[in-house]
Amino acid sequence: MGIQELTYLLQGLLWTLFLTVIGFVGGILFGIVVAVLRVSPSPWLRIPMICWIGVFQGTPLLMQLFVAYFGLPLLGFNFPAWAAVSVALTAHASAFLGEIWRGAIQAVPSGQSEAANALGLPGWSRMVDVVMPQAFKLSLPATVGFLVQLLKGTSLAAIVGFIELTRAGTIVSNQIYKPLLVFGVVGALYCAMCWPLSLWGRRLEQRMAAGAAK
């Protein structure tokens, strides 16, 4: 494998990183919205979120990518491929993270909300200052686990013609006939991205545990 092929793989890696970052950032922002609306007392806010979560958890990511890539142009949106894929990844991540955080919010003991209410804290402060920090800590293992999944899930973007890391690997492998070597490198690159993420998640968990306990 020469420098040219390696450069090609690294270009694919950049796309993978780019899609991942978009999925993370969009998923986290919209995921917070989904989680907060999902625990709202109003059914008008809650029920649409239940449907949103149901749709994205109940269908394959591959299908969601198809729908975004081929469906959005039909609705008159003229997105470049990366934008369509970003929309799909963001929506997908928002549903999964929203559901993870919904569970975590509801796992915070009710005494915490009662104490916040008894002190007269406004609803937003009860969520932001009291419930969400505790929910975030509870959800950290599941959140990091999902983000690792999402990073690997970006490989599905190849299906709509995206040359991200996995697709770049396939192309190079077909050119130089060394699939073991090429996919070994590709696998190592995925590991190099996922492993620090897991490690960082564990660090954060330990640091938060140390902060709150003895």
Binding site: G111, G120, L121, D129, Q134
Partner: peptide
């Protein structure tokens, strides 16, 4: 059950509501 906020220090527990409310 006290219901102190476990992620905040004693002082932070005490200043939250006075600042917000």
């Amino acid at each position: 059950q006290f219901n102190l906020f476990p992620h905040k220090t004693v002082l932070e527990n005490c200043i939250l509501a006075p600042m917000r409310v």
